[in-house]
Nucleic acid binder design. Sequence first.
DNA 1: AAACGTTACTAAAACGATTTAGTAATAACT
DNA 2: AGTTATTACTAAATCGTTTTAGTAACGTTT
Lengths: 349, 349
Amino acid sequence: MSKVKLKDVAEKAGVSKSTVSQYLNKRYEFMGKETRKRIEKVIEDLRYQPNEVARSLKIKKTNTIGVIVANILHPFSTYVSRGVEDYCQQRGYNVILCNADNDSNKEKSYIEMLQMKQVDGIIIAATGKNNDLIYREREKGFPIVLFDRYFDDVEVDMVLSDNYQGAFQAVEHLIKMGHKNIALVAPEGHLLSMRKLRIDGYYGALKKYNIPIDESYVKFVTTENLTNQLNDLFRQDHVPTAVFTVNDLMTIEVLTYLKENNIKVPDEMAVVVFDDLPMASLLEAPLTVVAQPTYEIGTTSARMLIERIESKVKPKHEQKILPCQLIVRQSCGFRKNAEANENIPALNA
Amino acid sequence: MSKVKLKDVAEKAGVSKSTVSQYLNKRYEFMGKETRKRIEKVIEDLRYQPNEVARSLKIKKTNTIGVIVANILHPFSTYVSRGVEDYCQQRGYNVILCNADNDSNKEKSYIEMLQMKQVDGIIIAATGKNNDLIYREREKGFPIVLFDRYFDDVEVDMVLSDNYQGAFQAVEHLIKMGHKNIALVAPEGHLLSMRKLRIDGYYGALKKYNIPIDESYVKFVTTENLTNQLNDLFRQDHVPTAVFTVNDLMTIEVLTYLKENNIKVPDEMAVVVFDDLPMASLLEAPLTVVAQPTYEIGTTSARMLIERIESKVKPKHEQKILPCQLIVRQSCGFRKNAEANENIPALNA
DNA sequence: AAACGTTACTAAAACGATTTAGTAATAACT
DNA sequence: AGTTATTACTAAATCGTTTTAGTAACGTTT
């Protein structure tokens, strides 16, 4: 029982394949009203479904895009994906989702695979190790949008959230709550550009308020040295009164550490973190977070990509920076009557 | 600057298209060693990438499968997807991910779209309103695997987790901790089969231990009547001492309610929930949960689907039921020295 | 009545691969 | 020497669409 194809419809309706094809493409002006009805009926009866693969081959367009995320288990990727999906669905595109796992080989092979599949474009949170490939494709006119990571050596469309501003705001808020001894916990290793901006935001806020930088408050941790580093941080002579964590992995580690060591948030330690977490509001002390506009990053990337795909010009690349939002809950030591502090002038300025 | 195609490679290498094609399909026995080297080099030089769309058309196989989940924002879907992705990647398949949002129209149009795209098979958490369609496709020999939801009217491969056992265990655990007044919170509305099993598990455990059923402890809530229902539940004369929530949405609502009303978990109210949550261990009282084997549901579904795709026989449908796992943390009122209770015999039996 | 436009179609050539059937040249066997 | 096998290829058909160029029939101008 093989699939019914255009030819079958044509034969049963007593017309040529061309006419059926015109019908499928809604160019009804090329056929009589009778014929049109007839074709319609036959398609219905036969439950005919056009073969998109054949169509794609002919028209050289698949109406499919590829999305390469770091890890679909990560809420950030998940929300971005959903944004992409929703926007694409509405514009008639499908999305092939790929997990690169921050592995540049996997990333490369996904890019190549997607191209062999003739996707119309790619949205990618790039590792940064395939920039040459990406740049080359871009030069050939292949639509690509980068998100989440910034690379100034590759001229391509990007959509980012304002990491500096977000981090700055978070730390500024802590300062306005009266904190001066503010720690930073970040993952070690070659600093992915965006993470660097968050660290810069931390320094920037301290600087603005003339708070001297204490390097013993700045910890770059790895999975191995994590406990040691946190011990160093929280068990030194003059412990910080607040911590800022630059991503949700760090957040979970720090929170776990504090819980295990019975350090009360926010009374003994205020916490402000980068990236909202689904359950952030149900924690013992609901977390104050700087939330990225994840869903919008997705829709915006998709919009930019589809624009590129559908307009056949190749304009200069575009960068879109979306603002982050500080969501004040309780882990920063917020208390009802502390609201007034929000408007105090810079402390030492 | 158009793409380089098979023909270009053939010309430059001075052979026919057929030979290049044989090369691409690794049938090296059909060409001389010289020729083989030459083709290899030309492909390298030209950066030739085969067009998978053309290939798919010819061989009638896309090496792509479709996955339709309820909502990618939901951790359950996310972990399943990841399982599917990982398994497929390793077997050389790609996955198109779709969100049906529990909307049967969306679901239907996704199924149709995926078929037009000629995917080799579909993995789907079905809404249950397109069972006729699914059954028809299955009959035609189109590979489909259902997961997460059980329908006895459709003869198709399924992979499920043992919802009854999971719920039973959760409630049994509560009973073993000494609770007798155990409430159930579930979403109202036509009971999706799996959810029903969880409810049955609740009743089953009560029955086994001869605990009389108090219907005022069983609440089916909607978004509208939520607060009223929870008020009824927690403010009645003899309040329950424990609650079991059947999914994570309910969990969040109940936890939020308890927090707002300052009811302490687990001292004033023990809580055991269905579905693990990413931050469950960081909550004020780390949650005791029954966790579904989400990742395995994904890999198993993918494995079953690919088996169906690659063996061209159509055996009787298969149902795989994976066990859930009770993860005891603290919200159930667990205390170090309560462990002994685990082994007491059924209380009233 | 010749010329031109419309209307309602169709035949055939793509799209870029795979595959089948065939062939020419050489080697091996009887 | 004649037959058969093997090696190393190629030509052409095919997959299921879209699209271009063409045409036959009829109506409308001039």
